[in-house]
C-alpha cells in the first residue's frame, strides 16, 4: 500500500522546529441573541503547532472544536487571548495562508474539479501561470489525476473529499485546518483516505491542525494530541505520539495508546456530568 513511502521517523521535533500556530489563553463567549445570557464556549485554551507537525484536537461533538478552527481561520471572533499564525520558514513574509477542509466537501458543483481549485487560487491571489501546474500536482497527489474536467457531482463522496483536500493543499497553506474531514464517509472509504493522507503528508509536508472525536483516528495520524472536554472547551491533557511512521491502525502500540487515552477521556468526561 501507498503508506510505505512515508518517512521512517516521527515527524515531531518540537525542540528545533519553528512554530506555525500559537494559541495563547484563547477564550470565547457566546451571548444568546436578545436574551442577554452569556456562556463561555472556549475557556483559556493554549496550544502550539510546530511547522510540519500533525496536531489533533480530540473532543466530544459540539465541544467547540469547530469554533476554535473558525477562529484560527479568521472567520469568527474571540474574546480573550491571542492567535498567531506564522508564515512558513523560508517563504517571504506574507499574510498567513490558512486552508480548510470541512466535514462535507463544500465544492462548487457548477465548476469543474479544476475550476474549484482555481477558485481558491484566485481568492488567494496566486499568479495565473501557477494555476495549471498546481491543479495537476495536487490532483495527482490525492489520486485524482485526469479528473480536472469532471464535475463534483459525478464523483463519489470520498472522491469529492479528495478534491477538497487537493483544493486546500493547492494554496500551499501555512496551516491546514481539518474539521472531522472523514466523519461523513463510510468506514472503508475513511480508512483509505487516512492512509492516503499519511502518504500526502510525506510529500507536501503541510502543517495540520486536525479536529476529531475519534481517538483511534487521532492516534493513527498525529504527532501530538490535545484532549478537550466540553462546556466550556478546555484542554485537559496533551499527549506526544512518539510512534514511528509508517503506522498501521492495528499496531499494538497504537491500540494500546488509544485504549489508555479512551479510558482517560471518558473518566474525565463522565466525571464532569
Amino acid at each position: 500500500m501507498a503508506h510505505v513511502m512515508l518517512r521512517k521517523t516521527a515527524r515531531t521535533d518540537t525542540a528545533s522546529a519553528p512554530t506555525a500556530v500559537i494559541i495563547d489563553k484563547l477564550s470565547k463567549k457566546f451571548t444568546v441573541p436578545g436574551g442577554g445570557i452569556t456562556f463561555t464556549v472556549i475557556e483559556s485554551v493554549s496550544l502550539t503547532v510546530g511547522e510540519g507537525q500533525f496536531v489533533s484536537i480530540v473532543g466530544p461533538s459540539g465541544c467547540g472544536k469547530s469554533t476554535l478552527l473558525n477562529i484560527i481561520a479568521g472567520i469568527e471572533s474571540y474574546d480573550g487571548g491571542s492567535v498567531t499564525v506564522a508564515p512558513r520558514a523560508g517563504t517571504a513574509s506574507h499574510e498567513p495562508r490558512v486552508a480548510y477542509v470541512f466535514q462535507s466537501p463544500r465544492l462548487l458543483n457548477w465548476l469543474t474539479v479544476q475550476g474549484n481549485i482555481e477558485f481558491v487560487l484566485e481568492a488567494q491571489g496566486v499568479p495565473r501561470e501557477q494555476w495549471q501546474p498546481r491543479v495537476t500536482k495536487y490532483l495527482q497527489m490525492v489520486g485524482l489525476g485526469g479528473q480536472e474536467k469532471n464535475y463534483p457531482l459525478n464523483l463519489s463522496g470520498g472522491m469529492q473529499q479528495r478534491v477538497a483536500i487537493a483544493r486546500a493543499l493547492a494554496i500551499e497553506p501555512d496551516i491546514l485546518l481539518m474539521d472531522e474531514p472523514f466523519s461523513h464517509l463510510d468506514a472503508i472509504t475513511a480508512r483509505k483516505l487516512r492512509f492516503d493522507l499519511m502518504e500526502i503528508l510525506g510529500r507536501a509536508k503541510p502543517t495540520i491542525l486536525f479536529v476529531t472525536h475519534d481517538l483511534a483516528e487521532a492516534v493513527f495520524l498525529s504527532d501530538h494530541i490535545y484532549m478537550m472536554n466540553t462546556r466550556p472547551a478546555r484542554i485537559f491533557k496533551e499527549v506526544e505520539v512518539d510512534i514511528p511512521r509508517p503506522r498501521k491502525p492495528e499496531d499494538s502500540v497504537i491500540l494500546d495508546l488509544e485504549k489508555s487515552l479512551v479510558r482517560e477521556f471518558f473518566s474525565v468526561l463522565e466525571g464532569k456530568t
Binding site: I75, Y100, F119, E122, A123
Partner: peptide, 9 residues
C-alpha cells in the same frame, strides 16, 4: 463560508 475562509473577495 468556504469562500470567505479561503479569503475570496
Amino acid at each position: 463560508e468556504m469562500g470567505v475562509t479561503f479569503k475570496a473577495r
